[in-house]
C-alpha cells in the first residue's frame, strides 16, 4: 500500500442475512484528502464508514488502515485504532445526559492523561472554532440541529484524529448552516492535516469540500475521481445522480 493511502477497502462485501449491502468494493482513501461518498439512500455509504473504524466486519474482503488489516487486530488494538479515527454521526449521537462541554471533553478525559485545565483549554478553543462557546453548558436537547452537528464534529475531532468520518453532516439543514458546516469540515481537516471521509447527498457541499468523490450504486463503486472528473463524467449512472433526473439507468424503489 503506497504512502499516500491512509485506508483501503479491498474486495469488500457485506451482507445482513439475505440482503447484500456491499458487493466486492475496492476503494482507496487518500491521506490528507477529503473523500466524499455519494449514492442513493441505502446504497451502503454509512456502512463503508463503519467498516473503516471496525464498527462493522466485512462478510469477505479486507479493510486496511495505515497498512494494517483491521481484522487481525486484537480488541485493545482495535480500541487504539478507533481512538485515532473520529466519527461524526448523522444524528450527532451526543450523550444526552452530558452537557455539550462534557460531551466534547469525554474522549480526552477517558483516552488521554491530560489534566483538567489542559482539557478545558482544548475544549473551549474547539467550541469557539465551531461557534458553540455560548452553548458549552447546554444539554443536547436544548440545541438546534445545526448546533448538534457542530457539537458532534467537535467531539469527533477533539483528540486530533488521523482520520475523521462524517456521516451525512449537512442533511436536513438550511443552506447557510450547510455552508458553515462545510467550511468547518474543511478547516478542521486543514488544521489537523487529517484525512476525512464524508457521506453526503448535498452535491453543492461536496463540490465545495471534496478532493475525491466515489459513487456507490447497487453495492459497488461505479465511479471514482476528482470533483472535476466526476462532474464531467459521461457515466450514465453518475450523470443521472448528479443532475437529479428521474429517468435513467438508476431504478429507484
Amino acid at each position: 500500500m503506497s504512502d499516500n493511502i491512509y485506508a483501503r477497502l479491498e474486495n469488500v462485501s457485506l451482507s445482513y442475512g439475505d440482503k447484500h449491502v456491499l458487493d466486492g468494493i475496492n476503494l482507496d482513501i487518500v491521506k490528507g484528502a477529503i473523500t466524499c461518498l455519494i449514492g442513493l439512500s441505502g446504497a451502503g455509504k454509512s456502512t463503508v464508514l463503519r467498516l473503516l473504524n471496525g464498527l462493522r466486519t466485512p462478510t469477505s474482503g479486507r479493510v486496511y488502515v495505515e497498512g494494517v488489516d483491521i481484522a487481525t487486530l486484537h480488541k485493545k488494538e482495535l480500541v487504539k485504532l478507533r481512538q485515532q479515527i473520529g466519527f461524526a454521526f448523522q444524528f450527532s449521537a451526543l450523550f444526552d445526559s452530558l452537557s455539550i462541554y462534557d460531551n466534547v471533553a469525554l474522549p480526552l478525559r477517558e483516552n488521554t492523561s491530560l489534566s483538567e485545565p489542559e482539557i478545558h483549554t482544548l475544549v473551549e478553543t474547539l467550541l469557539s472554532t465551531v461557534g458553540l462557546e455560548q452553548s458549552a453548558q447546554a444539554l443536547p436537547s436544548e440545541l438546534s440541529g445545526g448546533m448538534l452537528k457542530r457539537a458532534g464534529f467537535a467531539r469527533a475531532v477533539i483528540a486530533h484524529p488521523a482520520m475523521v468520518l462524517y456521516d451525512e453532516p449537512t442533511t436536513g439543514l438550511d443552506p447557510i448552516i450547510t455552508r458553515l458546516l462545510t467550511d468547518i469540515i474543511r478547516n478542521l481537516q486543514i488544521r489537523d492535516k487529517s484525512t476525512a471521509v464524508v457521506v453526503s447527498h448535498d452535491l453543492e457541499s461536496i463540490y465545495a469540500m471534496a478532493d475525491y468523490i466515489a459513487m456507490l450504486y447497487d453495492g459497488k463503486i461505479i465511479a471514482y475521481g476528482t470533483v472535476a472528473e466526476i462532474h464531467s463524467s459521461t457515466n450514465p449512472f453518475v450523470m443521472q445522480f448528479i443532475h437529479g433526473e428521474i429517468e435513467g439507468p438508476i431504478h429507484v424503489g
Binding site: 464498527l55 480500541v79 485504532l81 481512538q83 466519527f87 454521526f89 451526543l94 469525554l106 483516552n111
Partner: peptide, 10 residues
C-alpha cells in the same frame, strides 16, 4: 446511536 458512538470513541 449513543452506544455505537461509545464504541467509535474507543
Amino acid at each position: 446511536e449513543q452506544v455505537e458512538a461509545l464504541h467509535a470513541l474507543g
